[in-house]
Design a protein around this nucleic acid. Sequence first.
DNA 1: AGCTTCGCTGAGGATGTGCTGAAGATTTCG
DNA 2: CGAAATCTTCAGCACATCCTCAGCGAAGCT
Lengths: 220, 220
Amino acid sequence: MTPRVLVVEDAEPIRTAVGIALSEAGYGVRTRPDGEGFERELASWRPDLVLLDVMLPGRDGFELLTVARETSNAGVILLTARDAVDDRLHGLRTGADDYVVKPFVLAELIARVEAVLRRMGRLRTVLTVGDLEVDVEAQAVRRGGEEIDLTATEFKLLAFLAGRDGKVVGKTQLLTAVWGYDDYADNLVEVYVSGLRRKLEAHGPRLLHTVRGSGYVLRS
Amino acid sequence: MTPRVLVVEDAEPIRTAVGIALSEAGYGVRTRPDGEGFERELASWRPDLVLLDVMLPGRDGFELLTVARETSNAGVILLTARDAVDDRLHGLRTGADDYVVKPFVLAELIARVEAVLRRMGRLRTVLTVGDLEVDVEAQAVRRGGEEIDLTATEFKLLAFLAGRDGKVVGKTQLLTAVWGYDDYADNLVEVYVSGLRRKLEAHGPRLLHTVRGSGYVLRS
DNA sequence: AGCTTCGCTGAGGATGTGCTGAAGATTTCG
DNA sequence: CGAAATCTTCAGCACATCCTCAGCGAAGCT
């Protein structure tokens, strides 16, 4: 149901940050600092996607990439350092579905992950909450048959909430996921929630609820 | 429903670019850097079309072509380098449904893929959106019986949008698919959309909608 | 109840995005 | 070769959208 992502990255802060960001974005996540037991995890947990740092102690990302290709049909995204010897990389990047250059913004990584999963068909394209339908590919929102017109930002916000269906999402989390901000500007979220509610509630009861002190939830 | 395309190409940037372009064009895509596990993928995923680079590590494209012919009825397009020994190629090319010479423009590749799939009967030839009919083979457009006269570029644009029926298509995506550009020239798209609308809306309400911040959709 | 914190919402200025007419460049075709 | 059609660029306009701000109301705490 929810896609699983395996992260192999030796740098602790990055590993943790990526892990948290992905799990906040609604994915099942496991992380490891190196390639130890990689095969076992692939076989038993069957991740849909693998994020591999290229520079790893022991076997590097390329070796693991090969393993992943041979023994699973998981997608692979490589994390490469900008200043690595370019020629070598160019040849070796071989086989990944995508790659992200470090340092990266978390929002971008999430977007790439989503893109690859969607390309692989592992992601639902229509999300449903009560009588609300959010079609991610068509960028369309319907409620009880009625088409609802949203701006780009409103749509991103709603789509994210719909993807986290039933779970409470904090304002800061929304800021990073929807706007790519990492600082606090909570009122911005409030303003957009307000607008979204006006449009949504023209066609039915409240779906987007406030959880005081924590954030918002989308549920019926 | 949506045709599946398997891409075997060792050069990373090309493979990724082709993969993304094809999936944006609405195909199901899988990519691999070499012939490893080719048979397995053929048998289990049953692609409608295979794109084979000729120069591959391990088994080359010709060998894979033979395998594909023997064990599947997928179409095959070869990707060949311009400077390869021509005669030899000429003889060996035999058996492929088409071939594309590198370096190629993405738009051209997409067009070839479409052509082969159409020849194989795996692609609809008349696309319908509301009361609009787009006949790809006859290059004709009708709306409510009325014939509408379009220029070549206008037609390509409309046909692409019609093929992605209901899905939002970004301007950049349109630029690469219709014009073969890879840089930004958004206004060009806008100008053509404008012209297309004038012609289309002479016979009925708006079908080609703007999705501000994202692109355009064709739907009723 | 009073105080404080948190959330909601209307207003408005800045910005960005998209639309369109026109004109120059290029290609096609008679 | 010349005319017509088509393609592309450009510039200005119009307006949707974004974001900030400030005031108000609701909820929680003592």
